[in-house]
Design a protein around this nucleic acid. Structure first.
Lengths: 137, 137
DNA sequence: CCTGAAATGAGAAGCATTATCACTAGGGCG
DNA sequence: CGCCCTAGTGATAATGCTTCTCATTTCAGG
């Protein structure tokens, strides 16, 4: 995590910690997870995450229950990916989509751009079900 | 809206009203919209919606902010569809996906089934951006 | 009609998130 | 070097959506 400079946000110790936790995770994290993983106080974590979302560095992933999850925006992360969401416990896992599917999705999005009047920024492809643990337990 | 019988839920006046509002809408509704559209008291609307979600008649759509939205499950509605979500005002609109895309999505989901350990129930394909109104200002 | 289980609805309670505000930190400048 | 001004901080209060509580009502079946 380097930039943040072009934005009008100082790279403080707190923000560095929050970003580090997100960077090291392979899945979106709840605020609670960010707090316990970074040591940043809850109120500051909420504020920092909101600022980072506003700045486009972090994205919010709405799961099932128990609060939204956060991860680095794709341009700051490794790669484009989608989510496997457990409808039981809310756990979210990342997965890579096939290039084929992505191509078709892009085409679909282009078509929508033309017909909907929406200014489209991105798409979300989530697959839902029950995770291994919940199926077992 | 006929069934509900096979489930252990009585088709009461309130539930009928809630379902009617959802049935007549072409997009997912917030609880507030369901309340004002049906005349059902807030607490009952929340309870009924939760029961209907539990029963699989209604699905929750997590938008952007300002509360979850609800719509009839696809088997009780007309057709399979996806959502256009405005990241500004939270408005959600339905749209039909191309059969081509659906086919590829199904294939992708099958692959995930085999590799993830997830018991997959359905997928969500949302397109996000700013709606016509919010773009206009 | 009875009767018990399901449903109701107003208000209380719960909880994640946001706002408040006095205080601290830190970069720039006289 | 120290002053200033702004951004950041963090404990706490406030907000707001959602769920819970519980006394009352409805309703299907006997």
């Amino acid at each position: 995590m380097q930039a943040l400079a072009p934005l009008e946000l100082r790279l403080t110790g707190n923000r560095r910690s929050v970003l580090a936790v997100l960077e090291q995770s392979s899945r979106p994290l709840t605020v609670e997870e960010v707090v316990s993983g970074s040591g940043v106080p809850t109120s500051t974590a909420y504020r920092n995450l909101a600022e980072l979302v506003e700045a486009g560095v972090v994205v919010r992933v709405s799961g099932v229950g128990g609060g939204d999850r956060h991860e680095l925006a794709e341009q700051f992360s490794q790669h484009h990916h989608h989510h496997l969401v457990c409808t039981d416990c809310g756990m979210v896992t990342d997965f890579d989509p096939s290039p084929q599917l992505e191509k078709l999705i892009d085409r679909e999005v282009d078509a929508l751009l033309a017909t909907s009047g929406f200014e489209i920024t991105h798409h979300v492809f989530d697959v839902r079900g029950r995770c291994r643990d919940c199926v077992a337990g």
